[in-house]
Design a binder for these strands. Structure first.
Length: 577
RNA sequence: CGGGGCGUAGCGCAGUCUGGUAGCGCGUCUGGUUCGGGACCAGAAGGUCGGAGGUUCAAAUCCUCUCGUCCCGACCA
């Protein structure tokens, strides 16, 4: 491609609203352009990269026995009502009516669509296993899209679904997909972790997320350096050494004393004010579980794992109570809450059972109690494992200290079970003639997010620096002076020969100064650059440089094509595995 | 959905407090000089100041409503 004919609108200025490096750089390098909140045009460079990612996805999924299809994006309300999600999906599901006043939605995911398809074509145990996937634009009306392609409302997703006759068979399909995903992200050149995850709203029994490691990731993951256990923070288990499920009261704790703690709200503030350690203080949180208020007690330096609490309470909807609701139920402001004489059920984490002579809020604004003895000064309805895992906690399998990372979720595999097949009637007949619901798995990859995550992982102060496999072009050819006929002739020839050799070239034939080319060409994320200048050319040389290297290599004009071919091929081979 | 910003030329912004000729930088176009890390000189084009209503002799500026967008939080297969 000749740069002069390409649509690559680079910017010198850093877009002020973009926070994430990938977002900023994609805007600056002319990869994307925003149309409205969370909706972006993929410009030629981004689209070239995305198509390469798609290609890797297709190759690996096809190799794993999946078939590509394309389901309708506009879907009638009926199938969503069948699955129950028309009512439960919420506002992220963009709904509208057609001219006949019939209800439709833009599909944010395709369990309904694919299950409806399966219902009509998978009838017998002989029809399975089946694995169908598609790569398609999805729309989710997110409350707050952010970070460019990182979390858009409209985005490109590969979603796949497996159908099996039994849970065991579905496990096999799941494993195949897990392995295919591992190969896909490896081939994209990404540094990632597969972690255990909560299956969330989509339901199902178990799931793994594929997390690209990046400082800017929104997800926290914990992994064990010894046994390889890895899980999303919200799912991560911790080996608890405390097993007590009742409070053991120490007799020599002094009687509780109410102390004035004006303006001291956070655990750290109160601890500093009372000259104690945060772990001597009890943190009291108030939640609404399906509308009913409950209090949760944690050791001051612990955090709550809401999923664990949801499971313990067996509720569907768990939200933190608003400040005003807290005031109403507890009779005191947030910051002065405690379990003593609480009128709502109290649940305590195991660590609280090890605490003695501690501090908690007095349910009296700006007052705390000292010398609190759990079991004597308050009771709990249950003492259970409620803490959020943190770095240094013991691995649930081997006890080693867990390490924490930040990640970007680029893929998610779920073993769904019969959550959709049952209500939607996707059943089959077994050999005995009995009817059973198909057992499903579903598998997603955020294709556009993969590009964003890759740029998060591969960038520096000069711009994007993508691995050759997914870079929009493999080589940039940069003649230093377009008015010099010798230089241009050499560049033309190298361009023609590289193109003929199947190397993807961006020929920077713009009549601009060298400095402009260098700045732009570094920004774009193309791994190699051939610089053609008058002085070197007189000696029969051109310069070859990898984007990440500081120095040039001088190569004879006659050798450059073979030289580039060898380097590019080596890069492509290296990730094939 | 709560909190906070911001909407003025293609992009980035000043001007708004204190009402009175709509500005700057980048980019674009013309001509010239330059030419290996975002050149310089001269000239030019480009605006319903997000929208609607109001106050006023006069509104980018004040008031009311509204739309959009970004950030933080909550939310998120």
């Amino acid at each position: 491609m000749r740069y002069s004919q390409a649509l690559i609108p680079t910017r010198k200025e850093t877009p002020v609203d973009a926070e994430l490096p990938s977002h900023r750089l994609m805007l600056r390098a002319g990869y994307i352009e925003q149309l409205t909140a969370g909706v972006y045009t993929l410009m030629p460079l981004a689209w070239r990269s995305v198509r390469k990612i798609e290609q890797i996805v297709r190759e690996e999924l096809d190799a794993a026995g999946a078939q590509e299809i394309l389901l309708p994006m506009v879907q009638p309300a009926e199938i969503w009502k069948l699955s129950g999600r028309w009512d439960h999906y919420g506002k992220e599901l963009l709904r509208f009516k057609d001219r006949k006043d019939q209800e439709f939605c833009l599909s944010p995911t395709h369990e309904e669509g694919v299950t409806d398809l399966a219902k009509r074509h998978i009838r017998s145990y002989r029809d399975m296993p089946k694995n169908l996937y598609q790569i398609q634009v999805k729309f989710r009306d997110e409350l707050r899209p952010r970070g460019g392609l990182m979390r858009g409302r409209e985005f490109l997703m590969k979603d796949g679904y497996s159908f099996d006759i039994s849970f065991e068979a579905a496990e096999e399909s799941y494993k195949k997909m897990y392995n295919a995903y591992t190969r896909i992200f490896k081939r994209c050149g990404l540094s990632f972790r597969a972690v255990e995850a909560d299956s969330g709203n989509i339901g199902g029994s178990h799931s793994h997320e594929f997390q690209v490691l990046a400082q800017t990731g929104e997800d926290r993951i914990l992994s064990c350096p010894k046994c390889g256990y890895a899980a999303n923070e919200e799912k991560a288990e911790v080996k608890r050494t405390v097993t007590a499920t009742t409070f053991e009261v120490l007799a020599d704790t002094p009687a509780k004393v109410e102390v004035h703690t004006p303006g001291q709200h956070s655990i750290d503030e109160v601890a500093a004010f009372l000259k104690i350690q945060p772990e001597q203080s009890i943190k009291t949180l108030v939640y609404l579980a399906d509308g009913e208020p409950v209090a949760v007690l944690l050791r001051g330096n612990d955090s709550l794992n809401e999923i664990k609490l949801t499971r313990l309470l067996g509720c569907e909807n768990l939200v933190m109570a608003s400040d005003s609701a807290v005031k109403e139920v507890m009779g005191a402001e947030v910051g002065s809450l405690g379990p003593c004489d609480a009128k709502i059920p109290v649940y305590a984490d195991l660590n609280v059972a090890t605490m003695h002579d501690c501090v908690c809020g007095a349910n009296h604004t700006d007052y705390h109690f000292m010398h609190i003895e759990p079991g004597r000064d308050f009771q709990a309805k249950a003492i259970a494992d409620l803490v959020l895992a943190q770095e240094g906690d013991a691995c649930p399998h081997c006890g080693e200290a867990l390490q924490a990372f930040k990640g970007i979720e680029v893929g998610h595999v779920f073993l769904l079970g019969t959550k959709y097949s049952e209500p939607m009637g996707a059943t089959y007949l077994d050999a005995a003639g009995d009817s059973h619901p198909c057992v499903m798995g579903c598998y997603g990859i955020g294709v556009t997010r993969v590009l964003a995550a890759a740029i998060e992982q591969y960038n520096d102060e000069n711009g994007i620096n993508l691995p050759t496999v997914i870079a929009p072009f493999q080589v940039i050819i940069a003649p230093m002076l377009m008015k010099n006929e010798t230089v241009v002739a050499a560049a033309d020839k190298i361009y023609a020969e590289l193109e003929a050799a199947g190397i993807e070239c961006l020929y920077d034939d713009r009549d601009v100064r060298a400095g402009v080319k260098f700045k732009d060409d570094d920004l774009l994320g193309v791994p190699y650059r051939i610089t053609i200048g008058e002085r070197n050319l007189k000696e029969g040389l051109v310069e070859f440089k990898h984007r990440a290297d500081a120095d040039n290599t001088k190569v004879a004009v006659g050798d450059i094509v073979e030289f580039v071919k060898a380097r590019v091929r080596a890069d492509l081979e290296a990730v094939k595995g």
